[in-house]
Design a protein around this nucleic acid. Structure first.
Lengths: 215, 215
DNA sequence: ACGTATTCTGACGTTTCGTCAGATTCACGG
DNA sequence: CCGTGAATCTGACGAAACGTCAGAATACGT
């Protein structure tokens, strides 16, 4: 067994102390802020350095480039997403309540961390292995819980056997990962956040339990 | 009515001739190729220029930056996507056939143009107005057709009135726009392309017509 | 206060950006 | 076939960002 720790490292590999941890954190916060304000394509190392009032060289002590910093931000998110999926552990047979809570939480999460999540998905889709790894950790618990719900519904004869559990779970994840990005467009046409949550909750509920969409 | 043409323009506003159109096209092709090979974050003007064996200044005659070139690529795609949605005009009451064809075509489209589509969605999600405009043109026909199918199913009592037609249509679009990006992961775990198509077709069919997922 | 390890940065060579004046190429009339 | 003007392309350049490193500044234990 190789010795591993979760100590934070500088780019040269050394374990960093308290002062450095603070600097590292300020770099990450500044990166997240710039990512939100401008797009992923125009966050420059020099801008981050300017925001925290440090030399660009300081940035390079902790991250090899902006993408690397975003990867660290995404990695941090994995921890905080895990609490959302607790809703899957409840008994869904009673109705839509848990589905609604789940969708609401997921939407809130996207509202807060959209800029980072978008880059994570883009780079993972573009086959960057590091981001794929993070995406996997991020998706895996959701996928596992949804897949088992689908299988259960299939065993009970409420979902057709032609449905692939992984694909169905992935589809629901797709809905939750993309729909938040359409909120502004929806609202312009009169679809409220609540209507969106209700609809997604029903699609989720139906797809995972086999319940009809007719009411 | 102001005079408008669809002539191609250089960055200085002049209408361009045949030779220039060819150069412009070579720039776009090179950009698309680099986008596929590397990610969106690391396509440089100078790389595009090198590929077509031209000076960087030539690039700037037609596009203000790489993003601008990708926008042009995305705009071109709007034309070719419109043929896919013909499947919506058929009568779906007979079964899954048209849904399957639609999903298959959409997946093929993503396989071919994924790199450009990903940037379009990212930049639109990041609230860039130009990309939002393209995304709207790209989505609008699909949305309209799906919304009307949902409304029809609601009128017939096959879909609950609590379902928001726009949100439901958007959700299905979300599935089709994100699931292609998971194909590689799916296949590693034994979910074939065919199983994915079949599952998405069933979800689509169920969500738009109210048919049960139980088979 | 001193010595040492940690952290930060000024300074610099390199790469890319983005512009412009002038060179090159092309179409066409003579 | 040549000359001419319009269209297109590019060499050259200043500005900006990258990325590295030696040494300066800082914090910390004793």
């Amino acid at each position: 067994m190789s010795e591993t720790t979760d100590d934070l490292l500088a780019t040269d590999g050394r374990v960093i102390g308290q002062r450095a941890q603070l600097t590292r954190r300020r770099i990450l916060d500044a990166t997240a802020a710039l990512l939100r304000e401008h797009g992923a394509l125009e966050v420059k190392v020099i801008d981050v350095a300017r925001v925290i009032d440090a030399s660009p060289a300081t940035f390079y002590q902790y991250f090899s480039d902006v993408e690397d910093a975003i990867l660290a931000l995404a990695t941090d998110l994995v921890r905080s997403v895990s609490s959302i999926q607790e809703q899957f552990d409840r008994d869904w047979s009673g109705g839509l309540e848990h589905a609604r809570t789940l969708v609401t939480d997921y939407l809130d999460f996207w509202d807060e961390h959209g800029p980072v999540l978008r880059v994570m998905l883009l780079r993972a889709d573009e086959k960057d292995e590091r981001f794929r790894q993070v995406r996997r950790e991020y998706n895996a618990p959701f996928m596992a819980k949804m897949v088992s719900k689908v299988r259960a519904a299939q065993s009970a004869g409420r979902l057709a056997p032609e449905i692939d559990p992984e694909a169905a779970a992935g589809a629901m994840l797709a809905v939750m990962d993309r729909l938040p990005n359409y909120r502004q467009g929806f609202e312009k046409r009169g679809t409220t956040r609540e209507a969106m949550i209700e609809t997604v909750a029903r699609l989720l509920y139906s797809s995972l339990t086999g319940a009809p969409l007719s009411g």
